[in-house]
Design a protein around this nucleic acid. Structure first.
Length: 805
RNA sequence: GCCCGAGUGGCGGAAUGGCAGACGCGGUGGCCUCAAAAGCCACUGCCCUCCGGGGCGUGUGGGUUCGAGUCCCACCUCGGGCACCA
């Protein structure tokens, strides 16, 4: 009797061995074909939770599998270590966030090691390292020089809970902060922006070529929100030199314009408001400005209160008719020109407004017969539109209307985006300082590269007011102007932490480079990431910013010029839920992995995450989960005994067993390729059951260990070493012999009227005619025919024959 | 409201248009044991049965097909995303 399976002993032994062997440290001149696997680097909040375990299990499986297939696999890891939780915890404990953060990183890294996940730790990146901060700031300077970073006064989202501004992407649809849940309000502030909208078109177009989940691509397309249309001028009635510019996606419906609308914040409101309307307009604007986004976006409330007449009219250039100009809260200053032509017949919002204010409605598209709705936005023939009449579809009418506008020099074709520039300023302490100095003489001056990094000082008092201590720190704030040497003030805002994660994957290619943020030669070799793995929650924010950064860095000559996309393939794992909600620290419903590592071990926990269901699906953590994990452990114990001769004896029919082993190789290899790990595990369990029944062969057992090596690396390595005295993870991935994969016999299903009536063992190469006569000769078939003559016989050898009567 | 995704045993889940429920959990019975644990073996969708077998069954209702969990149409439920973006 060999010793029993002791996960803790086996795992400790192999984790030490792997650290010595350095199998997963790859150099940039490694001759093997490159493959870059990356799990999203985590925010260090303490020991790994189940979501991390799931993420790193998939990542590690791919790393080990690709290595066995002969690739040089780049598998780096780091920590997204700037951020609000550390800052808040530091305030609470009245300590500096750095030691706090370093301690959390230590805990997280330790649990990654205990999981047996392999990374090239030489390449580790921490966002808060001065070395990384320096490159972040160098890139900021390049962005500034190229006009990709700029400072502007704009209405921005202010979160009172986080005491900082937020990017549009960080505000949820209901107007609350995605992090704290507080209601976000608008403030006008001078802030730094990145010009992501310059890349709007490319960000949209490149999505088509990405091997990403369709869901994520759709979410990004919606977020970019491209719409094609036209912009043109509406001259004010009686003052032809004053014009209101409007954007529309439906220039074909222009003859149906019955009024025009300005956003309440539109700069021409005062000019267009007549004296008798001035009081009403002022009251309306006052009310709208006080409303939060939630109230303003709410469709609740009486429609009559949603707008006000300015007293002026503009002339519709299509038919020279004057139409009244209103203000309405449903028109936003931030999109298009902040003014619209209103066509109630083809736009439901305009329809509702027209009904409330008793404005006329003129249909310009013939709705289909039996149309009972109100506004009709669909396709149809043009009506009531003078020279557009007779056209039978919207697309042609649109094109003709735009051509006309351009011919008349009234307007032009125009594309608009929902995407806004990225607001990167944060009034926080624990982030990458924005490397800017404000000088009375020279204005905005970037800190020169050779004076970077600008790092936050250590001697700060963490303020419970929520204000960044940088503001109060005279030593930091007061500086000299790099240009004129005169007294100047530092920028005290830091960058959004999404900046850090927007290019770390490029830095991983050569984190030792002291000359440039990205080593182009190394990036050319490794990029784009072949397989990126992370949570669906990053579908828009991180993944959009990282795509923007990659394009911008390539255009600035920092990254390889041809690199247009960072992540070739993306896999988004499902989240872990408990009691209906996401398992998370903030919800307080974590089930720590440590308890499993201390009992059944890392391999059993990994196996559970692989076996529980399709990787993309959400996982429910229930009362049953511990039993499922025990089941995985039971399987590994069976494998243990099998491999060490304490299980079944040798197979009586070795050939049959070995053929099954070849089929197993084909099955598991195929499942690995299509991310179907749950069925791969099932096949391995099934095969183990077969060996317990039929007896084992050395080939069968060794094959199992090779196939298990990426999934349950410790136990596979231990058993392989005991049997073969080598390293299972440096063995080549097994290849199935196609001749042996083929089955020796097949089961022919015989149906009568689609119901199974008999099963016959046949030769897999059987032809249709033979199969048909075998089926008809079946006693059971004859019984069910009851003397009737078959109308038709479907023969699909060697699987099935269906006799129809 | 719009756009995705999903509905299969007590549970997690499996099924290139061709034996529905692989594999696992749970359950039942047996072997082993003084006993328990561990382990091994068998059974385990529902209903009927003369124990040969028969009927029903993948959210609902239709359709295509020799044959539908799978394809098409309409709907229901759940989950997610978007939602005055002109």
């Amino acid at each position: 009797m060999a010793d029993g399976y002791d996960p803790q002993a086996v795992e400790a032994k192999w984790q030490a061995r792997w650290a010595e062997e350095r199998t997963y440290e790859v150099d940039n001149d490694d001759p093997r074909p490159p493959f870059y696997v990356l799990s999203m680097y985590p925010y260090p909040s303490g020991p790994a939770h189940q979501g991390h375990v799931r993420n790193y299990t998939f990542g590690d499986l791919i790393v080990r599998h690709r290595t066995m297939q002969g690739h040089a696999v780049l598998s780096p890891m780091g920590f997204d270590s700037f951020g609000l939780p550390a800052e808040n915890a530091a305030i609470k404990a009245n300590i500096h966030p750095r030691p706090f953060t370093d301690a959390r990183i230590g805990e997280l890294k330790a649990s990654m090691l205990r999981l047996g996940a392999m990374y090239d730790w030489r390449r580790e990146i921490r966002s808060h390292d001065p070395g990384y901060i320096r490159w972040n700031q160098v890139i900021f300077n390049r962005f500034l020089a190229a006009g990709l970073a700029y400072r502007a006064n704009a209405p921005v989202n202010w979160c009172p809970g986080c005491n900082t501004v937020l990017a549009n992407e960080q505000v949820l649809a209901d107007g609350t902060c995605e992090r704290s849940g507080d209601v976000v309000s608008k403030r006008n502030l001078e802030q730094w922006f990145f010009a992501i909208t310059k890349y709007a078109d490319e960000l949209l177009e490149c999505l088509d070529g990405l091997d990403w989940p369709e869901r994520v691509k759709t979410m990004q397309r919606n977020w970019i929100g491209r719409s094609e249309g036209a912009e043109f001028d509406l001259p004010v009635d009686g003052r032809p030199d004053v014009k209101v510019r409007v954007f529309t996606t439906r220039p074909d419906t222009s003859f149906g314009m019955t009024y025009a609308v300005l956003a309440p914040e539109h700069p021409m409101v005062d000019e267009l408001t007549t004296d008798d309307q001035r009081t009403a307009v002022a009251e309306f604007r006052e009310r709208v400005s006080k409303e939060s986004d939630i109230e303003r976006l709410s469709t609740e409330g009486p429609a009559e209160k949603r707008g006000v007449f300015t007293g002026s009219s503009v002339v519709n250039p299509f038919n020279a008719q004057p139409v009244p100009v209103y203000l309405a809260d449903y028109v936003l200053m931030g999109y298009g020109t902040g003014a619209i032509m209103a066509v109630p017949a083809e736009d439901q919002r305009d329809w509702d407004f027209a009904k409330a204010y008793d404005l006329p409605i003129v249909r310009t598209v013939q709705p289909p017969e039996g149309w009972e709705g109100e506004a009709y936005a669909g396709d149809g023939p043009v009506i009531n539109s003078e020279w557009l009449n007779g056209l039978t579809d919207v697309a042609t009418a649109k094109a003709k209307a735009i051509d006309w506008l351009e011919d008349q020099r009234l307007g032009e074709r125009k594309v608009n985006y929902r995407l806004r520039d990225w607001l990167v300023s944060r009034q926080r302490f624990w982030g990458c300082p924005i490397p800017i100095v404000y000088c009375a003489a020279d204005g905005i001056v970037p800190v020169p590269d050779d004076q970077l990094p600008v790092v936050a000082p250590d001697d700060v008092q963490m303020l419970s007011t929520g204000e960044s201590p940088l503001k109060a720190h005279e030593g930091f704030r007061k500086t000299t102007c790099p240009k004129c040497g005169g007294p100047a003030e530092r920028e005290t805002d830091t960058m959004d932490t999404f900046v850090d994660s927007s290019w770390y994957f490029l830095r991983f290619c050569d984190p030792w480079d002291g000359m440039d943020p990205v080593d182009k030669k190394a990036a050319e070799r490794w990029m784009p990431v072949d397989q990126y793995i992370g949570g669906i929650e990053h579908a828009i924010l991180h993944l959009m910013y990282a795509r923007f950064y990659t394009k911008a860095l390539a255009d600035l000559g920092i990254a390889p010029a041809g690199l247009r996309e960072p992540f070739k393939r993306l896999f988004t794992q499902g989240m872990i839920r408990m009691g209906g909600t996401k398992m998370s620290k903030s919800k307080g419903n974590l089930v720590a992995p440590a308890k499993y590592l201390d009992t059944v071990g890392a391999d059993s926990l990994r196996l559970y995450h692989l076996f529980v269901g399709p990787p993309a699906d959400d996982v429910d953590w229930t009362e049953q989960t511990d039993e499922l994990i025990d089941g995985c452990n039971r399987f590994l114990k069976r494998v243990w005994r099998l491999a060490l001769g304490d299980g079944p004896g040798p197979a009586a029919d070795a050939e049959t067993v070995d053929r099954a082993a070849h089929r197993l190789i084909a099955k598991v290899s195929g499942d690995y390729e299509r991310w179907s790990y749950n069925t791969a595990v099932a096949a391995l369990m099934e095969f183990t059951n077969l060996l317990y029944k039929e007896g084992a062969t050395d080939f069968a057992v060794d094959t199992m260990l090779l196939l298990l090596a990426p999934m349950t690396p410790h136990v596979a390595a231990e058993l392989w070493e005991r049997r073969r005295d080598g390293l299972v993870h440096t063995e080549p991935w097994p290849v199935a012999d196609q001749d042996l994969v083929r089955q020796e016999s097949a089961t022919l299903i015989v149906q009568v009227n689609g119901k199974v009536r008999d099963r016959i063992v046949v030769d897999p190469g059987i032809d249709a005619g033979t199969a048909e006569s075998l089926a008809l000769a079946s006693e059971r078939v004859q019984e069910h025919l009851g003397g009737r003559t078959p109308k038709k016989v479907i023969s699909r050898p060697p699987r099935l024959v269906n006799v129809v009567v």
